[in-house]
Design a protein around this nucleic acid. Structure first.
Lengths: 194, 194
DNA sequence: CAGAGTTGCATCATCAATGTTGCATGTTCT
DNA sequence: AGAACATGCAACATTGATGATGCAACTCTG
């Protein structure tokens, strides 16, 4: 591999990144957007997009793969296995939000056919599962908490926080974790109001 | 209007309903589904769908209009203006869930161009807003609660409950309201743990 | 400068979904 | 049975997105 080749390839990779980021911006606003619109947003010709990605599926797949990698790294960086549950929960939330703010669409498509992405995703899923189990055993969650429901709520809160978009990842994470654990009410719930 | 006409028109209306319901089933699974697939699910020919709905947009519009009406009725039937906040919250939740379980896709498309639907939707939005304000003033929500965030969370919880699909509307509503107010944790939150 | 590589542009082929129409065949009511 | 209407079927036109290709122009690097 010559120096020239490296330099040129670097240009190419920059273009690829521009396309991926443009696709994220466009598709997060309109999932049915056209390759033309993506190319326009990326500032390249549509043919260039097709030269880089054989098909639309390939493009979305590449986005999903990229987001999946960042997602897995974000979770791993929070050390959810070793950190105390509350710390882990907060760190995972903040890190995932950082990724999701930039790659929301790609992450929503990360559950597709690609076997590698599916594997990574399942792995993260399992880590999250264990984190919630640990949280419950540590008394952070109610002993009778339905972990499946808790996880659903958690994902939904992260999603809403990412959509609302006001504040940085740390502020949003605080809000998410706080809401997840305490809700927004003052009462002790329907079963024991007041 | 002759009796014959009435009878025939009644047949036609039944077909329309079958198409609307089939479209909901198909599109909730795959929003990009084909008119062909919708027709197949409805047990009619594709041409029949096109005879009833001039275009795909018209079909989705009709679904949205139908769902919007049921949605507005569901909220109104809970008397959110006059009932005590906690009761109103629960009743609205249960009633909306009943609609959303059957018309999830249509409701997700109810924010479109149609002026009448938009009006109704804004009206409901406002009722909900007032309900949350009343809930806060009644001490049901924390005094410092961000109503915008609370509403987002509320909508998201309803959505998740409808997706999870286990249990009837009343059980789901209980879960939603309980989670909204108390969260899933035992602590007093990040600011005052333990 | 020469060469390798990339991009833009124009163009073409393909394809799937949409929307239309004519006609024969029911179905329901009178 | 006859009138009125609805449906299925087959065929057709249209359209918009997708994907491919040839060529000229550009930008690096050596």
């Amino acid at each position: 591999m010559t120096g020239a080749t490296r330099a040129l390839r670097s240009d190419a990779e920059r273009t690829v990144r521009q396309i991926l980021e443009a696709a994220e911006r466009v598709l997060s606003r309109n999932p049915a957007a056209t390759m033309e619109q993506i190319a326009e947003e990326a500032g390249v010709a549509r043919t260039t997009v097709h030269r880089r990605f054989a098909s639309r599926d390939a493009l979305v797949g590449a986005m999903a793969a990229w987001a999946t990698r960042r997602f897995a790294d974000a979770v791993e960086a929070a050390h959810p296995e070793t950190a105390p549950p509350l710390v882990a929960l907060y760190q995972v939330t903040a890190n995932v939000l950082r990724v999701k703010l930039d790659w929301g669409f790609a992450m929503s498509r990360a559950l597709t056919a690609d076997p590698e992405a599916a594997r990574v995703h399942a792995e993260v899923e399992e880590k999250c599962e264990r984190m919630f189990r640990a949280a419950r055993e540590a008394g952070l969650l109610r002993p009778d908490a339905d972990l499946g429901w808790a996880r659903r709520v958690y994902y939904a809160l992260i999603h809403e926080a990412a959509q609302s978009g006001d504040g940085d990842a740390d502020a949003l994470a605080t809000r998410v974790v706080d809401t997840l654990l305490r809700g927004v009410g003052t009462t002790q719930g329907l079963t024991a109001p007041r």
